[in-house]
Design a protein around this nucleic acid. Structure first.
Lengths: 246, 246
DNA sequence: CTAATAGTGTCTATTAGACATTATTGT
DNA sequence: ACAATAATGTCTAATAGACACTATTAG
């Protein structure tokens, strides 16, 4: 057995004794979240004004560096950041994509794991952290801004994903406060896919899914009161047998 | 203006002068790829026997550490690793998910960006690197193995993604050598979704898509010759108007 | 009453699946 | 002729969309 082979087949313990992660060039890892909600007949995204370099003063996605002592997983990191901004744990969190390159951050090779979350009501004060400026922007407003890093692209990717979800599932319901009316839910879908949906067709889907229960209560505004529904637990991965047509 | 505020609003140049990435605890970043192909009436996945700690001797996904000097993006890193194993640049590469935690690798907080690629023909020698042992496994074989790290889960995630693609697009065509017959393409779809597809229905989709051109040539085996098709360029994001039913 | 909104009845066009039939090759 | 496989013809059931109609509230 050669010397090299002997080293290769040493114990894991031995190997780890001589391994030092700090020897390797480090990579900056941030976790950022495209946080969406439905408010005032619009889909809104939460943005934070950066208080630090780089891109200081620019609007950016809520997020931050991975904290190895606090985060036992990437989802943890995302949730931690979201709770810090909204004091709510989002009912829906999905990983969108991870971007990384040598030149997206002047501090070094940097990557960002992008999540997207849906949460009810923008009213949960986005300003818990008094130092930072935080605001909900409509998608169009956000698109018009030049965000920090490559966050514009991140928002587009998240939005596209939610559009697909709106076409083939009721996932968008998590952007609403429950109980909610079917008109509200339909409206969220319409905003995401950018097209009107027939009331009848939509209700058929709701019924076929079996995902919702009528609470018996109803709204009282102008017009006929609307029944208030809740999501039955347990049905997170339901898909339409046939997508909404584009 | 307070001292703190002054520091916050200094120039980016100043900020970077005092910034040292090495101060922060480093994260291990690997890029791994679920490389799939179609061969002998089966979907196969490429696995490499690990020659190093940790999990030495276990089968694992091809991949490796991000190399800041070589990789200008995560896709770059994935392509670099794939080309090293197969000497082919895959015609289809998609990011699946990123996993990370403090305990998936004994060397420290580690994350892996999982890609999945489709490439034609397993015959491109998977053994370019003579030191490493590499083999194509059928999905069932791979499932029966205890792979290194969390690579079993990665394969499942990739496979699930390709199943969805097979239900709503012709993306699986990239697992085939072109030109190909419609029967071959249909077979790949069937294997991915785990269900037989009507020949007629499938051909209707092919025609409706406009994605393929008949080369005029045809196979000669036993039975009636099958027309050979090629993918028209430019049509990478076509989706069925109506998914294949499950 | 009217306005406004919620919810239903029903027709039609589309189309995926099923399956029988025809087509084209080798032996 | 027969076996084997590819490709097409055609029927049917399912259903999304369209849109008219009914229901229920406020003022």
């Amino acid at each position: 057995m050669t010397h090299r082979a002997r080293r290769m087949t040493g114990t894991l313990k031995e190997y780890l004794k001589h391994y030092d992660a700090a020897e390797y060039p480090s990579v900056l890892v941030t976790v950022d979240t495209v946080l969406l909600t439905y408010q005032e007949d619009a889909i809104k995204v939460l943005l934070i004004k950066r208080a630090n370099h780089p891109d200081i003063g620019d609007w950016a996605l809520p997020g931050g560096f991975l904290d190895q002592s606090k985060d036992s997983s990437l989802e943890d990191a995302a949730n931690r950041n979201i709770e810090a901004k909204t004091s709510i744990r989002p009912p829906y969190l999905e990983q969108i994509q991870t971007v990384g390159s040598g030149d997206r951050d002047p501090r070094g090779w940097s990557m960002s794991v992008i999540f997207s979350a849906l949460i009810p009501i923008a009213s949960c004060k986005a300003n818990a952290d008094s130092v930072e400026e935080a605001r909900w922007f409509s998608i169009d407003e956000a698109r018009a801004l030049a965000l920090a890093f490559d966050h514009n692209q991140a928002i587009e990717a998240a939005f596209e994903r939610h559009k697909q979800k709106a076409l083939n599932s009721f996932i968008p319901v998590y952007a609403l406060t429950q109980p909610m009316t079917l008109t509200e839910l339909r409206r969220v879908h319409e905003l995401l896919i950018g097209k009107a949906i027939q009331r009848k067709s939509f209700i058929r889907r709701v019924e076929a899914s079996g995902m919702f229960t009528d609470t018996g209560k109803s709204t009282q505004d102008k017009g006929r009161p609307a029944a208030l529904y809740k999501v039955k637990s347990a049905v997170k991965d339901y898909r339409f047998v046939r997508n909404i047509e584009v």
